[in-house]
Write a protein that binds this DNA or RNA. Sequence first.
DNA 1: ACGCGCGTGTGACATGATGTGGCTTTTCGT
DNA 2: ACGAAAAGCCACATCATGTCACACGCGCGT
Lengths: 252, 252
Amino acid sequence: MTQFDRIARLVALLERQGSCAITELATHFAVSEETIRRDVRLLEAEGRAFKVHGGVTLPDGRRETPVLVRMREQAEAKRAVAHRAASLIEDGMTVLIDSGTTSCWLARALTGFSRLTVVTNSLEVAGALLNQAGVRVHLAGGALNADYRAAFDREAVRYARGFAPDATILSMGAIDAARGFLDFDPDEAGFKRALLDVARRVVVVADSSKFVRAGTIHVADFAQVADLVADGAIPDPIVTAAARAGTRLHRA
Amino acid sequence: MTQFDRIARLVALLERQGSCAITELATHFAVSEETIRRDVRLLEAEGRAFKVHGGVTLPDGRRETPVLVRMREQAEAKRAVAHRAASLIEDGMTVLIDSGTTSCWLARALTGFSRLTVVTNSLEVAGALLNQAGVRVHLAGGALNADYRAAFDREAVRYARGFAPDATILSMGAIDAARGFLDFDPDEAGFKRALLDVARRVVVVADSSKFVRAGTIHVADFAQVADLVADGAIPDPIVTAAARAGTRLHRA
DNA sequence: ACGCGCGTGTGACATGATGTGGCTTTTCGT
DNA sequence: ACGAAAAGCCACATCATGTCACACGCGCGT
């Protein structure tokens, strides 16, 4: 195991856990604590990690921002959903991806394409995709929302609507059999609604926690959504509502 | 087995395993380690592999992006320059920041403001600023350049030119007393030139390595630059050129 | 044959990575 | 507020790895 590999895995660990203890890392990688500290010092100099007494955390820019905190909630479920959703995407497509946490996982799951065009309003999604070979990224800019690390304003809508994506992939705050797809943030909801108007095929990605939460703002009805990708058991009312509206269900 | 064949197989191995150790490769191909290193140097020059201590890895995937790699070069100097440049910025201003590595450090140095508006075309700069309290971030979107993690296209230019910033802060690839401010990438240079047209006050941030490098594309003359922030000793020809053009010098 | 370019091996030297011990700083219970 | 324990930092030793300069051998062509 080279230093490079160790640091790469350390960062991966960090991104999954948010923070690690030096002693744990030392035993985990079977090196001295001083060596771990040196790795951490390197990462900190690059701004990729943040040193704290006894351990290491994600840096300021990536820490404690709501969207990234929520990335770690239900992480396994979201990762599974993301991989299932990635299988719906084919080489050569143009897809639009919004700014939810499941979308971030999706961006990381989009590997192995040779010619994929992605439009997004999310800093995190764009950043993850820039590391994937074969993916061209178009970022919808505008005034950024610090919580979501994404742009929802008129400018972002205008840019995103200039594309004709094969699939529009949205994550939703909550899903209700009766009321359809809901969200919490007015700006985010407005952005999604604006995209729905011009979408050819809408794919919603959602971990199962979305079925038991209550949203406040209506975004879409089942009839507007072509595919719903979810993990675990999908409640019967949702299955019924989807069947009636013609929404395909994909279980991760 | 010719060198060509060996390198081809080395790349194939790399693509299957992601990374290889120099010692293993040397025994595998029954050549000296130095020979393997020479192969790897060639591949790295072509961007087809990435050298790490003790081995070689694929250039894509988890590897750091070029802009983040370059953040590490001259990191201390750039950090110092960034702090000096931050002191030129006052609360309430609107500033435009471009996508260079020094600009990334500047973004991290912009702390303690209560009302600052920043316009940028860089993912990294925007990401760093989103967590600074009191900073509103406007991101110029468009097609993203994976190396720079920024947008340079017409869309980004149009958006950025919609602001009237109090200061336009640019980093430059090279600075020459006779030819002025230079860059390497045509897209990046084009973006900067487009901003210069409408800039009220141009601030250039540069670590001292910029003075000894040669750029290929002309971006600006000294007369267009109001402030130049640099670290260490500024060469006499630069000082003279700046004085003649009225460019203020700030030493970090 | 001769010289030339190129790839390769070799050894000296430079750089990098890691562990260890002494010392300073931080943390936390009392 | 104090002091012990934990954690961090630094300097040094050691070993692995990288780089460079030079030498050798092989094919090639005027």
